[in-house]
Design a protein around this nucleic acid. Structure first.
Lengths: 109, 109
DNA sequence: TTTATAGTTAAGCATTTTCTTAAGTATCAG
DNA sequence: CTGATACTTAAGAAAATGCTTAACTATAAA
């Protein structure tokens, strides 16, 4: 399960173009910090900041070997964020169905 | 389709417990501003602020009749936010499959 | 050993976010 | 008309974000 703080962090992390670009990059495979930074229009420390947010959200993990840090997507957290939305949408649809039945009965149709 | 600014707004909107609570409330059916505010530990103007964020993100819409404003979830935007994550997850899985094939061939298994 | 690479930390600054209280406006009810 | 209700706006404080440059550490290469 996912507590509200984890969800906060995951959605906040995704609420930034730069970090979504990083996630998208990592879905094509693992990458180093420099790999992630190369296409981005900002300094390396700025990228590090975004990486920290992504790691704290659980969407990304990384390990350092020698002087190179390699980053990966964490698909589990991706799924969990996906699921929260999916569940709310389903809840809304279920409600809509119930309303439909009610109107259907009321109007004898 | 969804441009990056819309996605920004949608995920930023979901990246806050209060606003997720409001969305959750609205998945059980339409509600007025006061309905939304009642369970929340903050002032009405603060709730209005959150509502504004939700409306600007396209996740919620509202209409005013007389002095009462009624709010609704907008399931389309919910779906679109869901889809972005789903697509990245699938991208990652496809990549993993390709890696699996590669390793499979390499190891003659 | 010297130099280049890859990443990290720290300080500082502008902007945005999230909340407050106070003071409105526009219905609706009596 | 008078007061209560439902929201709305504005001003402002405190904290969080997102970036910069400068300085530093650890590793690898020459």
């Amino acid at each position: 399960m996912l507590n509200y703080k984890e969800l906060d962090r995951a959605y906040q992390a995704l609420g930034d173009v730069t970090r979504r670009a990083m996630v998208e990059h990592l879905t094509r495979g693992p990458a180093t910090v420099s790999d992630l930074a190369r296409p981005l229009p900002m300094s390396l420390p700025a990228v590090m900041g975004h990486l920290k947010v992504l790691e704290e959200s659980g969407l990304v993990t990384s390990r350092k070997q020698g002087r190179v840090r390699t980053c990966q997507v964490e698909p589990r957290m991706l799924s969990q964020a996906e699921r929260w939305i999916a569940e709310r949408r389903q809840m809304w649809e279920a409600n809509l169905d119930r309303l439909g039945e009610y109107l259907g009965e009321g109007n004898a149709k």
